[in-house]
Design a protein around this nucleic acid. Structure first.
Length: 558
RNA sequence: GCCGCUAUCGUCUAACGGUUAGGACAUAGGAUUCUCAAUCCUACAAUCGGGGUUCGAUUCCCCGUAGCGGUACCA
């Protein structure tokens, strides 16, 4: 057991260069002036070179709640693990979130600069701050240096397992917690590497209550682990950086992933020992993915699931608005009802409520996401679809981008097909799909299509007859109704039936229905058995091109 | 193993202790002045199991079970 004095000596021995006091640090990070009810939240990802869809989710929650309360949203980069860090990681996060319209009031800017008065927002640049607090903790006997090696740790673990005890570095298993000053000095003289650990005074048998933003009131056991605060490389662990940074930055509500929930007792002890006021927690369940053919759920993983990476959505041109809306329905299921009632309001108007979050992990359902994206794109004007498609194509599909740029009006007309009135076409899920819409309207794309004899239910000579006769009556001035009447007449004259019920009852009397006649024309013009409204397709295509294609098709039908 | 959290249709979820357990997505049928998409209609489909408490339990309590998370000098 060391005395008070010895602990102060020890602190100076370990951190001779740390001259600042805890009070000095607090002077640099003054209390925030906030309106009543304003919440300061932070989103704190690690730069691992990958923007997880779950990060967009967390980032959205963070910025949304702060906006709603007239508070502050902070982006803080937790780059304390040198092993996992990736070069462009920070930029990827900042730009990626920005791409979704998720912007923070404070944090690292895109160019590596910092915005806000509580900088730096990169933990790797706050090492001096953590040292001040580590020294303080050691001086008051709440922390101590530990020289145990990895091998020794493994050994302890083995013994614990054998004895049926809880594993970990705690209580009497924690060899270095009460080491004498002399022992420590001798290790230091040897140059042995060490970590700084918490001197835990918690008792696993004691419980305490806390209120979580989504889980509500829960009872937890006290922490008794001597957790590592400072690693041997001088970097803090998350556990140590979290109370310090969040307190210094004036955070009023910690929202974080559910995987942190188990660490709450440790964090409570740390807040207390650091002399900080406890910040309330809200633990958000992770996004899940079905695995094992529907037998089990698991966290969306960046290794196995391409759709965990936000880049996947960007590459394919999923509209960010659709993704945000889907994430909001996952967060608060009443979002859907709100959206139905307020189809034209911006999502900023929606009030997100933490207590409405689901307690278990929600499955990330890409099918539902696509449905929402589809609805969103259907609500856009043809001009908007054009602009957004072009934005996407410029980056990911140069050929389509060129086509769009050179034929702006024509393309807008194409996107306008079935986009007005009560029957809105809903077949674009993501802007990548726009290309498919263009396919039948450009000869250069059209000719790439291989000719298939797709219409074997109508004889080739009859197909030829239909197309040839249609060429003679084709008039691009006629409206939709007349256009279809003419096709019916044409069909009638060739022995096709224009009345569906009549056809069903007397199939043998007819060669087919008007549907078949229209289908022949569709194939002649689009070389596809599926297309948007044929009348509108022909109008947009223009008489000249339509005729060309009809004639070519007729000539091929020998 | 130990600790903790969670549990309603396939999925996301709704239901002051009293509902015919509701909606959306998905799926399957049907409807439509042309195919596909859409739209409309219909169908299918759930309170994890067992005990309590209660006149009455999806809801409250206990025990199982399952899923998830934690059990690092990762976050």
């Amino acid at each position: 057991m060391r005395t008070k004095d010895e602990n102060i000596q020890l602190a100076d021995l370990l951190f001779p260069n740390v001259k600042e006091s805890v009070e000095d640090v607090f002077k640099k990070y003054p209390k925030r002036e906030l309106k009543d009810g304003a919440e300061v939240l932070r989103f704190a990802p690690s730069p691992t070179g990958f923007l997880h869809i779950g990060s967009v989710y967390s980032g959205l929650v963070c910025t949304k709640i702060s906006e709603q309360t007239d508070g502050v949203a902070i982006l803080r980069i937790e780059d304390t693990d040198k092993k996992r860090e990736v070069k462009e990681g920070v930029q990827l996060i900042v730009e990626g979130l920005k791409g979704f319209g998720i912007e923070f009031n404070e944090g690292p800017g895109i160019k590596g600069d910092s915005i806000g008065d509580y900088a730096p927002y990169m933990q790797s640049k706050r090492l001096d701050i953590y040292k001040v607090f580590a020294k303080y903790m050691i001086a008051k006997g709440s922390a101590y240096p530990c020289f145990i090696t990895e091998d020794q740790l493994a050994e302890i673990r083995e013994q614990q397992e054998k004895a049926g005890a809880r594993t970990g570095y705690y209580g009497s298993w924690a060899k270095w917690r009460d080491a004498s000053l002399e022992e420590i000095k001798s290790e230091l003289e040897n140059g042995s590497p060490f970590v700084v650990r918490l001197y835990s005074t918690g008792d696993i048998e004691n419980t305490f209550e806390m209120t979580d933003g989504v889980k509500g009131r829960v009872t937890l056991r006290e922490n008794d682990m001597d957790a590592v605060l400072l690693k041997s490389d001088g970097f803090p662990t998350y556990h140590f950086a979290h109370p310090i940074d969040d307190t210094l930055m004036g955070v009023t509500m910690v929202t974080r992933g559910d995987e942190w929930f188990s660490s709450v007792p440790l964090h409570y002890e740390l807040f207390a020992k650091l002399g900080f006021k406890q910040i309330p927690y809200t633990h958000i369940s992770p996004l899940m993915k079905m695995d094992n053919d529907g037998k089990s759920k698991r966290k969306l993983s960046k290794r196995k699931d391409p759709e965990a990476d936000v880049q996947y959505y960007i590459d394919h041109g999923y509209p960010k608005e659709g993704i945000l809306e889907y994430l909001l329905t996952l967060a608060n299921s009443n979002f859907y009802d709100w959206r139905v009632q307020n189809p034209n309001l911006d999502i900023d108007e929606f009030q997100l409520k933490l207590e409405k979050f689901n307690k278990a992990g929600a499955l990330f359902d890409i099918v539902k996401l696509e449905d929402i994206c589809k609805e969103y794109i259907a609500s856009l004007s043809a001009e908007q679809v054009y602009e957004k498609s072009l934005d996407w194509a410029k980056k990911y599909d140069k050929q389509t981008a060129k086509l769009l740029e050179l034929n702006k009006d024509y393309c807008i007309n194409i996107f306008n097909i079935e986009r007005s009135g009560s029957k809105i076409r809903k077949d674009i899920v993501k802007f990548e799909d726009s290309k498919l819409q263009l396919r039948i309207f450009f000869d250069e794309l059209f000719n790439e299509e291989e000719y298939e004899d797709i219409l074997n239910r109508v004889d080739r000579d009859i197909q030829k007859e239909i197309v040839e006769r249609y060429i003679n009556i084709y008039n691009s001035d006629e409206d939709n109704v007349v256009w279809f009447e003419n096709i019916k007449k044409l069909g009638d004259s060739l022995g096709f039936c224009s009345d569906r019920k009549e056809y069903e009852e007397n199939k043998e009397k007819y060669k087919g229905t008007v549907g078949d006649v229209a289908m022949v024309l569709r194939v002649a013009i689009t070389k596809k058995t599926q297309s948007p409204d044929l009348y509108q397709v022909m109008s947009v295509l223009g008489e000249q091109k339509a005729r060309q294609r009809l004639e070519k098709y007729a000539s091929e039908m020998v």
